[in-house]
């Protein structure tokens, strides 16, 4: 265990949230350096500590670029109409919101900020769960014209205290690209509706930012077969 060094509990909390957020971006395939994910508490405190010992959340915002591998993964299949499609991914903006209550107002400001900064998608991490109306707006966010194309995700700090994918009972989830999905369906002669499902509200699906229609490969340990892979269709 690392030395607490007289840091306040809220600082330690924020440090863990920050690290999980960085790891999440890395696991999704964004260009995040390993050092950022393993940032030490002292370094983190140096970066964002205020005089009263609490973290200053506005200094923690970061944006990340998708890596080449991720761009490939999100590449769209060419169609007759669009022979050279753009990958469905782009720069992401991660913001830490320190407000006690997050409602429509903050969410709208955030969405317009994403639009003005020409970000493809965004993650907002807030201290408390959002209000009901905010969640409703979030659900309809993809239909807002000025909003980001890739949608907005909202996490609560509490959910990011630990990285759930590192738990031993959570199997490995690997997102399949459109091309891989097509091959899978051909190989097993399936229609995508014949696959087992996973909800996009599933904790791991939320962690990976799965979108409706994508397929994940889930690799479990098996006593008899060593490894066992199954595929799930995100709905």
């Amino acid at each position: 265990m690392e030395d607490r060094g007289g840091h306040s509990p809220s600082m330690i909390r924020m440090w863990r949230v920050y690290r999980t957020a960085k790891e999440m971006c890395l696991d999704r395939g964004y260009d995040v350096s390993r050092e950022d994910c393993d940032i030490s508490l002292a370094e983190f405190a140096h970066k964002c500590q205020r005089e009263d010992g609490d973290p200053e959340r506005t200094r923690l915002h970061f944006s990340c670029q998708p890596s080449p591998a991720m761009l490939q993964k999100y590449a769209q299949l060419p169609t007759a109409k669009d022979p050279d499609p753009q990958p469905a991914i782009g720069t992401m903006w991660v913001e830490f919101n320190g407000d006690e209550n997050v409602g429509l107002k903050q969410l709208r400001d955030y969405i317009t900020h994403l639009g003005s900064g020409s970000f493809y998608s965004g993650i907002m991490i807030c201290t408390k769960p959002m209000t009901g109306m905010g969640l409703k707006l979030l659900r309809s966010a993809p239909h807002i014209e000025e909003g980001p194309k890739g949608g907005v995700e909202v996490f609560v700090e509490q959910d990011l205290l630990v990285n759930i994918t590192k738990h031993e009972l959570v199997p490995k989830h690997v997102l399949l690209s459109q091309e891989e999905k097509k091959q899978l369906l051909q190989r097993y002669r399936l229609k995508e509706t014949q696959l087992p499902r996973i909800q996009v509200t599933d904790p791991v699906a939320k962690y990976l930012g799965l979108r409706r229609g994508q397929v994940v490969k889930i690799i479990r340990k098996s006593e008899t077969a060593g490894r066992y892979a199954s595929y799930r269709w995100a709905i």
Partner: peptide, 10 residues
């Protein structure tokens, strides 16, 4: 109630 909540946040 939700409206009141939102106005209070503002």
């Amino acid at each position: 109630d939700a409206l009141i909540e939102e106005r209070n946040i503002a």
